[in-house]
């Protein structure tokens, strides 16, 4: 496997009133197979747009997405998605949701049951197999979403603020789960987040995006994800580098937002 290449992607939305929004400008990124990249940036800097382009829901106005040496044209099962919330199929049980991908492929029930059982064990939902998804809490629903995505065995997992709607405590637990799943499955992951801490904790690599036009502002290589795989995430946060990096990035984003406000006035 040769990973995922985001090659000089630009996206320009034409607005009905004749104007346009340059959501992305010349964004290039290379992801090695098995890498976890977190993407951070102020609201409106084009993170979701970038992810939608990689997923194949949007065609970029310029540039290419290349996965395993093949150009990407539309959505496909080799790129799995985890959304913030509300993307589960509430008319299906937990088990049916998780086995959706295998079922679509026409995998025999015996095989898919095995996959589902294993994944529900991994995310800790074995007892909720036959429950309706709307009976679960928000955190549990995101566990189902992760399991559903993994059941399809994608090469790349794209997550758009997957933990953004959870309360702080649940969120911490889920961050641990994401790290654990990443290490166990060795998937390539792009994780978009609003939270600087989350981006630092989970990303092997971190890119900070800047708005108007959306572009890559700064890149970091981080040790914390590897530390976090074996240690308590709380301990990782006490690392002196962690807090200095956090302050640095927070200041960076504050400045960007201030600049946006200034331009609007």
């Amino acid at each position: 496997m040769s990973g995922l290449e985001i090659d000089n992607v630009s996206m320009r939305f034409e607005l009905p009133d004749g104007g346009h929004v340059q959501a992305l400008k010349n964004v290039s990124l290379d992801l090695k197979s098995g890498e976890l990249l977190s993407v951070l940036g102020p609201s409106g800097c084009g993170k979701t747009t970038l992810l939608n382009i990689v997923a194949g829901f949007l065609a970029p106005t310029e540039g290419n997405i290349i996965l395993n040496d093949k150009k990407v044209y539309g959505p496909g099962p080799e790129r799995g998605m985890v959304f913030q919330q509300g993307a589960l199929f509430e008319w299906m049980s937990v088990r049916k949701n998780v086995s959706f991908g295998p079922d679509m492929k026409g995998m025999p029930k015996k095989e898919s049951d095995e996959i589902v059982d294993h994944l529900l064990d991994t995310v800790g939902l074995q007892d909720f197999k036959e429950k309706a998804v709307y009976e679960l809490s928000g955190g549990m629903q995101q566990r189902v979403a992760l399991a559903r995505c993994l059941a399809n065995d994608p090469d790349v997992i794209l997550m758009d603020e997957p933990l953004g709607a959870l309360d702080a405590l649940t969120r911490e637990k889920m961050q641990g789960l994401v790290l654990k799943l990443w290490k166990e499955t060795g998937k390539t992951i792009i994780l978009i987040t609003h939270s600087v801490e989350e981006a630092l904790l989970l990303g092997e690599r971190l890119v900070v995006m800047a708005p108007r036009p959306g572009r890559i502002h700064k890149e970091y290589n981080l040790p914390f994800a590897d530390l976090g795989v074996n240690a308590d995430l709380r301990e990782v946060k006490k690392h002196p580098d962690f807090s200095s990096k956090r302050e640095e990035i927070l200041t960076m984003i504050w400045d960007m937002e201030e600049e946006i406000m200034g331009r609007q006035e």
């Binding site: 997923a55 959505p75 998605m81 509300g86 993307a87 679509m104 399809n152």
Partner: peptide, 14 residues
Amino acid sequence: KISKVHAAYSLGAS
């Protein structure tokens, strides 16, 4: 919800 349709396409649905 568009995210449900997107999720289904990404899971390989025709």
